Simulated assay, not measured.
Amino acid sequence: MSGINKVILVGHLGKDPEVRHLDGNVSVASFPLATSESYNKDGKRIEQTEWHNIVMWRGLADVAAKYLQKGKLVYIEGKLRTRSFEDKEGHKKYSTEIVAENFTLLGRKTDFESNSSSATTNNTTAEAEPETPKNLGTGEFVKDDDERDLPF
C-alpha cells in the first residue's frame, strides 16, 4: 500500500526565487516561505512564524522566477522531500524541503498589475501570448478581469 505525501502552504516569500540551471538546461528555483499563525497565551497574542524551504523544477521554476518575488503571498501545493549531502568537512547533513507541484499567487488584483495579473501554475505544458495570458511554460496563467478581491 502506498502513502500520501501532500503539503499545502499559504505564506509570504522571504526573498526572491534563486534560479539555477543544471546540466541539460534544467531550471531549479528555490526560496524560503514564511507561514505564520497566532494564538493567545496567558492573555497575550503570540505570533509564531515557520520557515519552509521551497524548490520548484523546470517550467514551474521558470514561471516562479518571472512572477514570484519577496513579500508576495502565495498558495503552494507540493510534497515533502528530505535529501542528504556532505558539508565541506565531510559530515553528512540533511535538508527537508517542499518540492512544489503548483502555486497560485494570492491577494487583490491591484497587487499583480505590475505583473499583468494573478498566476496559477501547474504541471501542464502549453504556450501563451503575452497579451492574453493563459498558459506559460509548464504552468497555467489565469487572468481575472473581475474587480472582486479573492475571498482570503
Score class of each variant (00 low, 15 high):
Arg58Ile: 05
Gly107Val: 03
Leu80Val: 01
Trp57Glu: 00
Tyr67Arg: 11
Ser30Ala: 04
Thr138Gly: 12
Arg20Phe: 04
Phe152Pro: 02
Glu37Phe: 11
Ser36Phe: 09
Glu131Leu: 12
Asp23Lys: 15
Leu106Lys: 04
Asp146Gly: 13
Asn40Pro: 05
Lys88Leu: 08
Pro133Gly: 13
Leu9Pro: 15
Val55Arg: 07
Asp144Met: 09
Val63Ile: 04
Gln48Glu: 06
Lys88Gln: 10
Val55Leu: 06
Arg148Val: 03
Leu33Asn: 08
Pro17Gln: 10
Glu127Asn: 12
Thr120Met: 11
Ala128Gly: 13
Glu47Lys: 12
Pro151Gln: 10
Leu80Trp: 03
Lys44Arg: 10
Asp62Leu: 10
Asp145Met: 10
Asp149Val: 00
Lys41Gly: 07
Glu129Pro: 11
Gly14Glu: 06
Leu60Met: 04
Glu89Val: 00
Leu106Met: 07
Ser36Pro: 04
Lys66Gln: 09
Ser38Arg: 11
Asn115Gly: 11
Thr104Lys: 09
Thr82Asp: 00
Lys109Glu: 14
Thr138Tyr: 12
Thr35Met: 11
Lys44Ala: 07
Leu80Gln: 01
Lys93His: 01
Phe85Thr: 01
Gly24Ile: 14
Pro151Met: 10
Asp144Asn: 14
Met56His: 00
Arg148Asp: 08
Trp57Thr: 00
Tyr39Gly: 05
His21Arg: 15
Lys92Met: 06
Leu136Gln: 02
Ala61Leu: 13
Pro130Gly: 02
Gly59Ser: 02
Phe152Glu: 03
Lys88Trp: 05
Gly71Tyr: 10
Pro130Trp: 02
His52Arg: 08
Asp149Leu: 02
Val26Phe: 13
Glu127Ala: 14
Gly24Cys: 14
Leu73Met: 06
Lys15Pro: 15
Leu22Gln: 14
His91Pro: 00
Asn102Ala: 06
Gly14Phe: 03
Gly43Glu: 06
Asp145Glu: 11
Pro17Ser: 10
Arg58Val: 05
Val26Tyr: 12
Ser114His: 06
Arg148Cys: 03
Gly90Ala: 04
Ala65Ser: 12
Thr82Gly: 01
Asp87Cys: 01
Asn53Asp: 10
Ser84Val: 06
Phe31Gln: 08
His12Ser: 15
Glu37Tyr: 10
Ile46Cys: 05
Met1Pro: 08
Glu47Gly: 01
Asp149Lys: 04
Tyr67Glu: 03
Gly139Arg: 01
Thr104Met: 07
Lys88Asn: 07
Gly107Ala: 02
Ser118Glu: 12
Gly59Met: 01
Asp145Lys: 12
Pro151Gly: 07
Glu37Trp: 09
Asp62Gly: 05
Asp87Val: 00
Asn5Ile: 13
Pro151Val: 08
Glu131Trp: 08
Glu77Thr: 14
Leu13Ile: 15
